[in-house]
């Protein structure tokens, strides 16, 4: 079922926020799909990189719930191929920033049992707390 989008000032606000944080002019995206096709993680993503650009342009804050920005490895494949020279890894970073500034903890240290804590590689623990806590 098609979702009906109402284009309001709020939508532009979201676009402008991401534009400012990333430093990338998102309205420049011509939706050619080069980024998605070249992305090594695209098969794991729920929303393709090019579609993220589209949804941000439309001001759809629902992209914040997507896995895509967390899967972006900043490998820059999209960046070096984008015919408009957009840096999508910066857009991913901007989206992550917005999420992180929301101070939402995705993991709770108390929920990790001692047993689990011993098994987890240290780097994964540090990484998770950096990425998944506010």
């Amino acid at each position: 079922m098609a979702q009906i989008i109402k284009l309001k000032d709020k939508n532009t606000d979201f676009l402008e926020k991401i534009t400012e944080l990333s430093g990338e002019q998102i309205t420049l995206c011509e939706q050619c799909g080069t980024c998605s096709a070249g992305c090594p993680f695209v098969s794991e993503m729920d929303i393709n990189p090019s579609q993220i650009m589209r949804l941000v342009m439309l001001g759809q804050e629902s992209v914040m719930d997507s896995k895509t920005m967390w899967l972006c490895a900043s490998c820059f494949t999209c960046t070096v191929r984008c015919p408009r020279k957009l840096d999508l890894s910066k857009v991913s970073e901007a989206l992550r920033q917005v999420k992180l500034r929301g101070a939402i903890d995705e993991i709770d240290i108390k929920e990790i049992s001692d047993e689990e804590a011993l098994k987890l590689p240290t780097i994964a623990v540090v990484g998770s707390f950096r990425k998944f806590t506010g």
């Binding site: 096709a37 393709n48 090019s50």
Partner: peptide, 10 residues
């Protein structure tokens, strides 16, 4: 390798 940007499939 290409994205069909209209169906969003690779």
């Amino acid at each position: 390798t290409v994205e069909d940007t209209l169906s969003r499939n690779i």
